[in-house]
Amino acid sequence: MSRRPYIRPMSQTTWYMRNGRYKVYMLREMTSFLVGFYTFLTIYALATLASNSPQVWNSFLSSQQSTGMIALHGFALLYFLFYQTFPWFKLAPKAMPVQVGEKTLPGIYIVIGHYIVWAVLSAFIFWLAGVI
């Protein structure tokens, strides 16, 4: 007879300002800009390599050593750590619970496992890069 359910508008552009939880979510999603940037950087680095000119390659390398660039890389590293790595590792025990008999393995083991794998992979890359 007289139903008229009211639909509250959800703004397509500003909905994430609604509460702190969504803001954090958007900050996390923002890492995608950095991912884009590094994709571009990798392609650019490959292009310089492909140019077969040591000069071009060296100037690319030195451009990466400018204070600004190092600051940017440092920022990106921290941003990724805080908005991707740490939260993801923290949630890993939930996404991949390991149950032994009646008990689930305490999450901390799974988290530590992730950090160990991360350390090993990083060491491998440092080794490839000749740092260690």
Binding site: R21, Y25, L91, K94, M96, P97
Partner: peptide, 26 residues
Amino acid sequence: CSFVGACSEVCPKHVDPAAAIQQMKI
């Protein structure tokens, strides 16, 4: 689901639907 985890944070019964969804993705 983008795994915001908001659902699990507000769940009064600690059902943790976000975790369930991740497990289903796997």
